[in-house]
Structures are given as C-alpha cells and as structure tokens.
Amino acid sequence: MTEEELISKKQLLELTGISYGQLYRWKRKKLVPDEWFIRKSTFTGQETFFPKERMLERVEKIKNMKGDMSLDEIAGQVSIFPTEIQLSQQEILDSNIVSKVALSLYLQQKGPLESFEFQPLLFTYLIDQVLETGRVSSDEAKMILDTLFTYYDEMQGKNVEIIFIRKYGMGCCLLRSLPSELYIDKETKVILRLSVATMIEQLKTKLLEER
C-alpha cells in the first residue's frame, strides 16, 4: 500500500508559521494525536515527522477555531472519543447529516431505534461516506457495517482505519489500528481506505454547525 507523505517538523513550522512551543502545547492538549509525531533516523540523527496532509489540515483547523473556542473545547471537537448526543431519525434527516439511503441501510442491519446516540450516528455517517465514493455496492456497505458492529467496540479510543479490498470480484473489509503496517498481494485491489478519526471529526463539525 502507498505510504503517506511525511513533512518534517522544521518544514511544518516554516510552512504554517506556528512556533515550537505552540506545536507541543497542542500536543499536550491532545489537539494533535501522539501517533502523528513520528521519529525517524536521518543523516543528521533522529528527527520528528508528521503525516503531511492530515497535519496541515489540522493546523489550519485549529487556527480557524482558536478565535471562537478554547484549546480544551477544540480538543473535544477533534478528539476520537464520542460526544453526547441524542437525535431522532427525523432530526438527522432534516439536518442533512446523512442520506436517507444510509440511514435506511443502517436500520435494516441493526433494527429500529427510537433515537441515535453518537456511535450509531457515526456508523451511519461512515456508511454514507462509503456509498458516496461509488466504489462499493450496498451489499459491500452492509459488510463494512457488520464488521464495525463486530469489532469496533474493541478498538474504541484507537486510531482506526477502514480498508475495503477486493480480489477476483470478492470483497473483504478490514479494520486496522494505526500506526501499523499492512502488506497485501499484488492481485488484491484496495478499493477504499477511510480514517475513522477523520470521520469522527467531520461528524462533530456537522453536529456543531447544527446547534
């Protein structure tokens, strides 16, 4: 699988204009996950690198939110932990958080719910994002959902990636706890990769916008 492009700490500070002190204060406040601080050997010794695209997006988001929210409030917004909510099906649809198709698919698999707390809504949002790619069928989306039902609770609090692969027309869903390496044979196609942490952050932003 293709490795994520990295950016060095020096490059990050120069490109974004943030200071060394700001960066490590954000780390202490959990605005930036510990696993994004990647130590690697270089010709000058040990240096710190970050996943480039995700880190640049996170710095921009923190800068934009700082005017209206405290660092603790921002940390709650970008953390991978659930927030307390309770929404009816109609409230979810009226807010355009997920599509009717995704909501219907979730309820087919799980059964009727009077209201949605964060995790059921997150699963529905994940399936909505999966279907939007156009890369998987409804049956394959159900397979992803069943995998989440079975294993996600064991991975709560971890940085999880959903990977859907296909070989000879047969699909398979994997949940991967990052950081970890994954090797697959050349005949297996990676259909999609989805960061659950990113989806949690997006969902929290949508919920915040609807308040």
Rank of each mutant, 00 (worst) to 15 (best):
E3A: 08
E4V: 15
L6I: 03
I7Y: 09
K9D: 09
L13P: 05
E14Q: 15
T16H: 01
G21V: 13
Q22M: 11
R25F: 12
K29D: 11
P33M: 11
E35L: 12
F37H: 08
I38M: 10
K40R: 15
K40A: 12
K40D: 04
S41W: 14
S41C: 07
T42Y: 01
F43R: 14
T44Y: 15
T48A: 09
F50P: 03
L56T: 05
L56C: 06
E57L: 02
R58D: 06
R58S: 06
G67H: 03
M69S: 07
I74W: 00
A75M: 06
Q77T: 15
P82N: 14
L87S: 05
L87R: 04
S88Q: 11
Q89F: 05
Q90E: 15
D94H: 08
S95G: 01
S95W: 04
N96P: 00
V98N: 04
V101Y: 02
S104E: 15
L113Y: 05
E114A: 10
F116I: 05
E117Y: 06
Q119V: 12
L121Q: 13
Y125Q: 04
I127Y: 00
V130D: 02
V130S: 03
T133I: 10
R135M: 14
S138M: 14
A141K: 04
A141I: 03
L148T: 02
Y152Q: 00
E154F: 15
Q156A: 08
Q156N: 06
Q156C: 00
Q156H: 03
G157I: 10
K158N: 11
N159I: 06
I162W: 08
F164W: 07
I165A: 12
M170V: 15
G171M: 00
C172N: 13
L175E: 03
R176G: 00
P179S: 02
Y183M: 05
D185N: 14
K186C: 10
E187H: 02
K189C: 06
V190A: 12
L192F: 15
L194N: 02
V196A: 00
A197V: 02
M199Y: 04
M199T: 02
E201I: 08
L203G: 05
L203P: 07
T205R: 10
L207M: 10
L208I: 09
